[in-house]
Amino acid sequence: MIGFAILAFFQLVGWLIQRLTGLPLPANVIGLLLFIAALFLKWVPLHKVEETASFLLKYMSLFFVPVIVGSLAFFPYLREHWFVITGSGVISLLLPLLVTGWLVQSRIQARNNRQQKENAHVHRS
């Protein structure tokens, strides 16, 4: 229960900050950033929140059900615009997927090659 209280506390603080400052970030993201900071600063011990967090993350998809059911109202909109939505949806999934994959792999390979060369150099000298 203390874990849930801690998470709710950061959610509340994020919401308050968003309300008071008008910061253009989702209130939950402000709460998340503060929570991460609190974990790194050891203000919140990991073991106090770990159990609640893993429960919430494990069953997170349950909390989306009402949201998706709410999309019933958008069926006429979807029927009208499905072509644009599908087109943009598919391309904007595949493009970043491949770009990110290639980029990270090439950077890691470049770094490994560099390290190998350095190691070889150390061995020779």
Binding site: N28, F35, I36, L39, V49, L56, F63, F64, P66
Partner: peptide, 26 residues
């Protein structure tokens, strides 16, 4: 009518988002 109960469940998305901090930290 459904959302009267449904909104209770979707409320929990808030704490669940904050909980994402745990895997990031770990």
């Amino acid at each position: 009518d459904y959302q009267k109960g449904g909104s209770w469940l979707s409320f929990l998305l808030g704490p669940a988002t904050i909980a994402l901090g745990v895997p990031i930290y770990k």
